[in-house]
């Protein structure tokens, strides 16, 4: 596609494999036909082939079972109940087909759904406000990140989860460290955090190390510590491993 610049060095997170071999397929579930057409365009722009489109959760699950896509982009509020069909579908997709990453889209984000999602899976999930699709480049980046096993949480989800948290060891973090952690929680890489805060990448790494120390996180592999730090930050219980 002409003029599409792949976001520079933004895609990281656990197990991201940019430009993996083979065709990457996606399934889209959205009940508004108008928006579905637009979503198809953006998903294709991100380098996916749209294998199927669905208008409800049942159609989505059938499509995922049939095509086994790398990514499912799912609207939360779908027929018949117009409540949280998408969230429940996402949870069962992640449970039954762990190779399919799910990005949830919603007019409003709710921390409760985010907590459900994160409590079950720390990678390959995303939860964004619908309006984020309008910022095409960032959205494309989020799609790739989630498909690569990373996360993409809307800043509003993060701030909602923070509202819930009572006082805890996080009080020990400096304001800057908390900013870094919030961006990490959204699913951003060190480079993206550095770009956002206008600091060097090494400064970000230093902050992150300091965060790990202050939160008494075990010196396991870096990705796992990262996930744990974010979960602790969001006040979500880590999934049993």
């Amino acid at each position: 596609m002409p003029g599409v610049n792949a976001p520079t060095a933004l895609a990281t997170g656990p197990g991201v494999s940019e430009g993996a071999s083979g065709v990457r397929r996606a399934v889209i579930a959205e009940d508004s036909v108008l928006l579905r057409i637009g979503l198809v365009k953006v998903v294709e722009m991100a380098g996916f082939t749209v294998a199927a489109e669905a208008g409800d959760a049942a159609g989505l699950l059938a499509a995922v079972a049939e095509h086994r896509p790398e990514l499912a982009v799912v609207d939360v509020r779908m027929p018949p109940g117009f409540t949280d069909e998408g969230v429940r579908a996402a949870l069962s997709i992640r449970r039954e087909w762990p190779d399919t990453a799910v990005l949830l889209l919603s007019q409003y984000v709710e921390e409760r759904y985010a907590a459900d999602l994160l409590a079950a899976h720390t990678g390959g999930v995303g939860y964004l406000l619908k309006q984020r699709v309008a910022d095409v480049e960032e959205f494309v980046e989020a799609l790739r990140r989630v498909a690569g096993g990373g996360t993409a949480l809307d800043p509003q989800v993060v701030s909602q989860l923070l509202v819930r948290r009572a006082s805890d060891p996080l009080e020990r973090l400096t304001a800057r460290e908390r900013e870094v952690l919030a961006l990490m929680a959204e699913g951003r890489s060190n480079a993206a955090v550095a770009a956002q805060l206008v600091v060097s990448e090494s400064a970000v790494a230093k902050h992150i190390n300091s965060i790990f120390t202050k939160l008494d996180l075990p010196k396991a592999d870096a990705d796992h510590r990262r996930v744990l730090a974010v979960l602790r930050f969001l006040g979500v219980a880590a999934p049993g491993r």
Partner: peptide
Amino acid sequence: HDGAQQRLVSLALNLGLAKATLT
């Protein structure tokens, strides 16, 4: 939710696509 909001998102998305592709 079913009407105006989806239309607006679709509109913003198309404008975003135009912005991103029509360089």
